[in-house]
């Protein structure tokens, strides 16, 4: 594509979702990522138990993201053709998995407050 730049990409995403929704989604993603960093720093550790629960949520995030994308795009799994299609689909699944796990981790951490200090 001609003049393909980050600005073009942002313009395309703004058009895709509408500028407000797009930046709201970006904001939500940023807020959860920051919240995640915040609880990591606050707790000074990655809680294995919360991490485990978050991990259990990952397959659900992956499947939900893939199902959602297929639904929105009038597609079915049999439409997946070449390697790039698989990569994109895996990317969607990975985003769904990681996204949901971060959300779950953050919600657990914020819901329970800081853990008692530990060695």
């Amino acid at each position: 594509m001609e003049e393909f730049s980050l600005r073009t990409l942002l313009a395309v995403f703004e058009e895709m979702f509408g500028a407000w929704l797009f930046w709201a989604l970006v904001a939500v993603a940023v807020v959860f990522t920051l919240a995640w960093l915040y609880v990591l720093i606050r707790d000074r550790s990655l809680s294995f138990r919360k991490y485990l629960v978050a991990q259990i949520s990952m397959p659900f995030g992956a499947v939900a993201a893939v199902a959602f994308v297929l639904w929105v795009t009038n597609s079915r799994l049999r439409d997946i053709g070449g390697p790039i299609d698989w990569l994109v689909l895996l990317g969607v699944a990975a985003l769904g998995a990681v996204g949901l796990s971060i959300v779950v981790y953050v919600l657990q951490s914020l819901g329970r407050g800081a853990p008692p200090s530990q060695s």
């Binding site: 313009a11 053709g81 299609d85 689909l89």
Partner: peptide, 25 residues
Amino acid sequence: ELWISWLMKEIALKPTYNAMLRGLA
């Protein structure tokens, strides 16, 4: 015949077209 090419037509083409109308693409 690829799914990604379908995605481009189905979801990415109109936003790209609109960005082009605005002089941004």
